[in-house]
C-alpha cells in the first residue's frame, strides 16, 4: 500500500508498557492529529516511526517496505520533536545547508523566507537560541524539507500566540502548495482542531480512536439540562463523561442517538474535539 503502516507496535520501558499493540495506517496527503494525555506514548510512537528507537514488537512499513535502517524510507520522513538533535555549536544557516545535503531535497528559498517572517537570525548559533526559536528553526526545516511524511511533536512548544498563529498559517499554505502527510501531536487541541482531517487518540498505550475528524464529531454530543431529565434521556447511551452545576447537568455522549423523544428542558449540542478528547481519556471520571 501507499503510505505508512504501523503494525502491532509494542514498547516497554522496564516493566511499564508504553505502547500496547498499536496499529493504524497513514495515507498520503492528509493531516492527522495524534492526541493523548501526558505519558500516553505519543512521542515514543513517533520515535519508533522514524527509527529513533526500536519497538519491542511490531513493524513500521512505508510504501510496503520496512523502515528500519532503510535510508530510502527514512529519507522520506522528518520528525520535528521537542528534543534537540542538532549540533549545539552549529549556526542555523549551517544546519539548513546540512539538511539540504542529507535530505536531497530542501527548499532553501522558503526556509530563508520563513526565517525572515519568524524573525529567526540564521547566523545565530543553535545553542544560543531560546526554546521558542529552537522550535521555530525546527518548524522551518519541517516545512522546507522535501519529504512525504512530516511528524510534528508538540510543534508550538515555547511559541508565543503571534508565532503560533503564523505557524498555523504557514502550515496551511505549505500543505496547499505541496500536499503531503502531516502528523501533529499536540496538547493544544483547540488550536489544531480546524486543521486535522483524521484523529488518532492514544490512551494508556492503546489506540482508542482512529477515524476522520468529521465522522467522530458527527457522533459526539453534549446533552444538557435538568439533571433528572438528562439522566433519563441518556439512559442506555454511550455516556463518556458528565459535568454538574447545581441542578443542571451536562452528559457527554459518544455514539449515535436513537430516535428517542427529546424532553423540553434538555438541549443537544455538538461536542468539540477537545471536550471529546478530555472525556474519552479521563478514565471515566465525572466532574459532578
Amino acid at each position: 500500500m501507499k503510505g505508512i503502516e504501523v503494525k502491532q507496535i509494542t514498547k516497554r520501558y522496564g516493566k511499564k508498557v508504553i505502547l500496547n499493540g498499536i496499529g493504524f495506517e497513514l495515507e498520503p496527503n492528509k493531516i492527522y492529529g495524534l492526541l493523548g494525555r501526558n505519558g500516553a506514548g505519543k512521542s515514543t510512537l513517533l520515535n519508533i516511526m522514524t527509527d529513533r528507537v526500536s519497538a519491542d514488537d511490531g513493524e513500521i512499513r512505508l510504501d510496503g517496505v520496512d523502515i528500519q535502517d532503510n535510508d530510502q524510507q527514512l529519507g522520506n520522513m522528518y520528525l520535528m520533536s521537542e528534543v534537540d538533535l542538532y549540533p549545539k555549536a552549529a549556526k542555523v544557516s549551517q544546519i539548513f545547508k546540512w539538511t539540504a545535503q542529507l535530505y536531497n531535497g530542501f527548499d532553501m528559498e522558503l526556509a530563508m523566507k520563513l526565517a525572515q517572517k519568524f524573525d529567526l537570525d540564521v547566523k545565530a548559533q543553535f545553542s544560543k537560541l531560546s526554546t521558542g526559536y529552537r522550535t521555530i528553526m525546527k518548524l522551518i526545516i519541517a516545512l522546507s524539507v522535501q519529504v512525504e511524511f512530516i511528524f510534528l511533536d508538540e510543534p508550538v512548544l515555547g511559541l508565543d500566540a503571534n508565532h503560533r498563529d503564523l505557524f498555523y498559517k504557514e502550515l496551511v499554505q505549505s500543505y496547499s502548495d505541496n500536499p503531503r502527510t502531516f502528523v501533529i501531536s499536540t496538547h493544544l487541541i483547540e488550536e489544531v482542531a480546524q486543521l486535522i482531517e483524521h484523529v488518532l487518540v492514544i490512551d494508556q498505550g492503546r489506540l482508542i480512536i482512529d477515524d476522520e475528524t468529521e465522522d467522530i464529531l458527527k457522533n459526539a454530543y453534549m446533552i444538557s439540562g435538568a439533571e433528572e431529565e438528562v439522566d433519563q434521556y441518556v439512559d442506555g447511551l454511550n455516556v463518556i463523561g458528565s459535568d454538574k452545576l447545581a441542578s443542571l447537568k451536562a452528559s457527554y455522549v459518544f455514539g449515535e442517538l436513537d430516535n428517542r423523544v427529546i424532553p423540553d428542558r434538555v438541549s443537544i449540542d455538538k461536542m468539540d474535539l477537545q471536550t471529546l478528547f478530555i472525556n474519552l481519556t479521563n478514565g471515566g471520571q465525572n466532574n459532578e
Binding site: T50, R52, L74, G75, Y78, Y86, L102
Partner: peptide, 8 residues
C-alpha cells in the same frame, strides 16, 4: 544528528 536527518 544523522537520525534527525533520515540517515540509517
Amino acid at each position: 544528528f544523522f537520525i534527525q536527518n533520515g540517515i540509517s
